[in-house]
Design a protein around this nucleic acid. Structure first.
Lengths: 136, 136
DNA sequence: GGAAGATAGTTTCCAATAGATACCAAGGAG
DNA sequence: CTCCTTGGTATCTATTGGAAACTATCTTCC
């Protein structure tokens, strides 16, 4: 079903834990490519409160360009993590929302964002120490 | 201390939750830039079992190039998440290990990697559905 | 004695991506 | 008529990512 190397003699029923993030060509890696991305993390975190419109996200997440926002939203939609709903208002309204699958991910993603907030001071201290020790 | 906009009249002691990932120029975002990265996630997850050497990581994480591995390790070291220890053996041995700070992160990071493994089938199903619905 | 292999990287080059900016259509407000 | 809104796409450039070759030192193989 998935493009993985067929271990000779191993039954499919026995391969429940056969996927391995460390393996190249393993489809898990294709998934990780799409999740481990700064903008995706921020967007998923932003959608936790309920559906949000395109330009609303754009204004909230400071510094994201329209192109990258559109690209990232397509990616997340294609992977079934968010839904895209068009309302035929004038001008047209497009709402993005977490799917049930996306909701199962946001806990982890938010934990990452919050870890960054909480440990930022330690990280900047480490950076200063590193830069002093490595002047080159 | 950090390059953030100074909210007028707000005391530093009251700014415990002043950092906000959605804000541009907020240093949290600089942190997230370095964490939300496919290779960093894989490396941190790989180091959970104890110290590992450069070429060992390289062999385990299939598909990573030497350049990107070296760059990512430097990045993680500079941010205080991993340590780098040189042993004057012949040939020289370099061991990378999680710091205490890095250890606080690996739970979150591993959760991300495991979410990817667990929900991969749902994601690939969503991709097929999307690609059928959007032939363009 | 010379070649190969291990260590941990750096260097070089090309393709892919990210970001900034401009532009599009359809209307509503002033 | 002009500017503003909606949600994007098109274009151009700067940065990054990946593949491959190269560095240097020492050990082992034949």
């Amino acid at each position: 079903m998935f493009p993985r190397g067929n271990r000779e003699g191993v039954e499919m029923a026995d391969m429940q834990q056969a996927y391995n993030v460390y393996e190249d060509r393993c489809p898990t890696r294709l998934v990780l490519d799409r999740l481990a991305d700064k903008w995706a993390v921020l967007i998923l975190d932003r959608l936790q409160g309920g559906p949000v419109r395109f330009n609303h996200i754009r204004r909230d997440i400071k510094g994201i360009s329209q192109k990258v926002l559109a690209q990232t939203l397509r990616k997340l939609e294609r992977n079934g993590l968010i839904s895209r709903t068009i309302f035929p208002t004038v001008p047209v309204t497009v709402e993005y929302a977490l799917t049930p699958l996306g909701s199962t991910l946001t806990d982890t993603v938010s934990a990452l964002a919050h870890w960054a907030e909480k440990n930022m001071d330690a990280i900047f201290a480490a950076q200063r120490a590193y830069d002093e020790a490595h002047p080159g």
